[in-house]
């Protein structure tokens, strides 16, 4: 079918201008930086792909990247199932609905740096509820000196902060399922598991796609919370990609290398997000 009238595309123009200023132009600048050695705005030298070669051979990038993938995988493995369970156990009518919605929304309203500070205190073994309880349960715990404890604390902090988002998205998805599906399931005497597997989960596909992509992108770009909580330590145990990048760009003022690093970082996020998106939206034609 030939499309005769394309004038509706002009309506996209404002968004295009906005995206151009917020994303496309900065990105073009980063590409320009990534092929130059920049000392100051007027003193810069073209170095070609030199920074890319250096960055790709840099063990710091590889370590941060592995750490980052492991962290995002843990975040998704915990938050998505937990969010679904929380959404399934939320009330469907009555006063419980607004109360649980407000309670779930509260962690999402706390700014990132404040979350880091809250957990810095909660995790302390002398005055913090979490650290004190774990130490009194006989487990030696100190997030400031033990890499394993630091990891667990950063993960628990993320779960505390963001599981609500997954739960709220899933809850909205569950509420949109018409009652007739449940009635049909009752007639067939379907078990709770069958209702979940064949009615709720397929109907949650779209919101889960958004939840998985948001949580992946956010966790892959995490910076403020671990920076405030552990400063990337002990050692480099919780130094994720954003922090390595920030150290390079602002700490060492190494703009060219940092720009090459950002572009590689961007390509990784682009690929993983595209794979998630394609796997979840094209599942039927892949069979």
């Amino acid at each position: 079918m030939k499309i005769r009238d394309n004038r509706a595309w002009w309506l996209v123009l404002p968004v295009f201008v906005l995206v151009a200023f917020s994303a496309i132009i900065p990105m073009m600048t980063v590409v320009n930086y990534s092929v130059q050695d920049i000392f100051d705005p007027s003193t810069r030298y073209f170095v070609g792909t030199e920074w890319y070669r250096e960055i790709l051979a840099d063990p710091r990038l590889r370590d941060s990247l592995l750490r980052q993938f492991l962290y995002s995988a843990c975040v998704l493995a915990i938050e998505v199932p937990l969010g679904i369970v929380v959404a399934l156990s939320m009330p469907r009518r009555g006063l419980g609905v607004p109360v649980s919605l407000i309670l779930l929304a509260l962690p999402l309203l706390v700014p990132w740096n404040v979350v880091g500070t809250i957990w810095q205190i909660i995790g302390r073994e002398d005055i913090g509820l979490y650290g004190w309880l774990i130490n009194h349960a006989g487990i030696d715990y100190n997030y400031a000196s033990n890499p394993r404890d630091a990891w667990i604390t950063v993960l628990v902090m993320d779960v505390w902060h963001w599981t609500s988002l997954v739960a709220l998205l899933c809850y909205s998805g569950l509420r949109s399922i018409p009652d007739v599906y449940y009635q049909a399931a009752r007639i067939d005497r379907a078990s709770n598991w069958a209702v979940f597997r064949y009615i709720q989960l397929p109907k949650l596909k779209n919101v889960l796609l958004i939840a998985v992509m948001l949580r992946f992108m956010d966790s892959f770009m995490i910076y403020t919370e671990p920076f405030v909580l552990t400063g990337g330590g002990p050692g480099t145990a919780t130094t994720f990609l954003s922090q390595t990048l920030t150290q390079m760009a602002l700490g060492q003022f190494d703009l060219g290398r940092a720009a090459a690093f950002s572009l590689i970082y961007f390509l990784i996020i682009l690929l993983v997000t595209w794979v998630f998106y394609t796997a979840m939206t094209h599942r039927d034609d892949m069979r």
Partner: peptide, 15 residues
């Protein structure tokens, strides 16, 4: 456009 630090290869790439 000076702040964008353009070079000929990147300009050709984007073009």
């Amino acid at each position: 456009m000076g702040w964008m630090a353009w070079t000929l290869p990147t300009a050709l790439f984007f073009a």
